[in-house]
């Protein structure tokens, strides 16, 4: 399930069976499910200066993801996600927001397999697309539910496993469209007289390693997202969608087949370094069900 939720100021990757891994559904198998995620941060980086803000307190978001994966073939999977997000600030007067965020659709292709040494090497290619499901407000950071841009990404994933242990390295380039905001001008490092905002493209890396056997996974990971342009939040200013948002996260993830068709997932991650980004902690848990759409053989 290829899902990158680049969500608001506190953007974070929610993982299920994800774009960054090497797991494939078989042909005509459909995996459907949902994840609930809760994220929260109190400190954030204003540019590179770490600070708190007593006028927002902690910013939290509750996220409901409806997700699925379908095996077009044993080698090509389609993945989708529809998230609904609710944000809240624990202090100050600013209102939280809620709504459907960005629907994403992705294709993952298990392009190359080879036995190398004692283990298996696997190369996967991915391409993804996401776009806002509603005309939500992007220009109300950090309480907006998302960034409002339509994104495309291309991804390369390398996986190497020996027996029950594996390591996966995944890298994506995320192309983001301009967004339109409700005001006619805004200040970045200069005044821009337009309601259009050029959003920085992003580079994303993920490295995960752990145990993988018979549908059970236990992984620890480190990931990084880096904006390729954008500007820093000025001293005591509000954040803005086109800030240069960077983050490095560490996390853990488990996946377990309760019964053969029922999968339980859960995980957490934490931002250890950032720029124009909330020091987020995110926990998630979800349940998936695998259905075979194949006509019964003979």
């Amino acid at each position: 399930m290829f899902v990158l939720v680049v969500c608001c100021f506190c953007s974070i990757a929610v993982k299920a069976q994800t774009e960054t891994d090497a797991i494939m559904m078989d042909k005509n198998e459909l995996c459907l499910g949902g994840i609930f995620a809760y994220s929260k941060w109190t400190n954030y980086w204003e540019g590179s200066l770490k600070r708190e803000n007593l006028n927002i307190g902690s910013v939290s978001s509750r996220q409901y993801h409806f997700m699925g994966t379908y095996g077009l073939s044993n080698k090509v999977n389609l993945l989708f996600n529809v998230p609904y997000i609710i944000t809240k600030a624990s202090a100050g007067t600013l209102s939280g927001l809620k709504g459907f965020q960005d629907a994403s659709l992705a294709v993952k292709w298990d392009a190359y397999n080879k036995k190398v040494g004692k283990g298996n090497f696997n190369l996967l290619l991915g391409a993804g697309f996401s776009t806002p499901l509603s005309n939500y407000v992007a220009d109300f950071q950090p309480l907006s539910i998302g960034m409002g841009s339509t994104n495309f990404n291309g991804r390369l994933t390398l996986d190497y496993s020996v027996n029950k242990f594996y390591a996966t390295l995944s890298n994506a380039y995320i192309r983001r469209s301009n967004i339109e905001i409700d005001r006619t001008t805004y200040f970045t490092d200069r005044q821009i007289q337009s309601n259009q905002v050029a959003m920085p493209d992003m580079m994303q890396f993920n490295f995960g390693t752990g145990y993988r056997f018979n549908g059970t996974i236990a992984e620890i990971s480190v990931s990084n997202m880096t904006s390729l342009s954008g500007f820093d939040i000025r001293r005591n200013d509000m954040p803005f969608p086109s800030n240069r948002m960077n983050a490095t996260m560490v996390g853990g993830y488990v996946r377990y087949n309760l019964v053969s068709q029922l999968i339980l997932v859960g995980g957490a991650n934490y931002v250890v370094a950032g720029r124009n980004f909330g020091q987020n902690t995110l926990v998630h848990a979800g349940l998936f069900y695998v259905i075979s759409l194949k006509k019964s053989k003979n």
Partner: peptide, 9 residues
Amino acid sequence: SCKKDIIEQ
């Protein structure tokens, strides 16, 4: 998604 240039008012 390429068009990123912004024409100001």
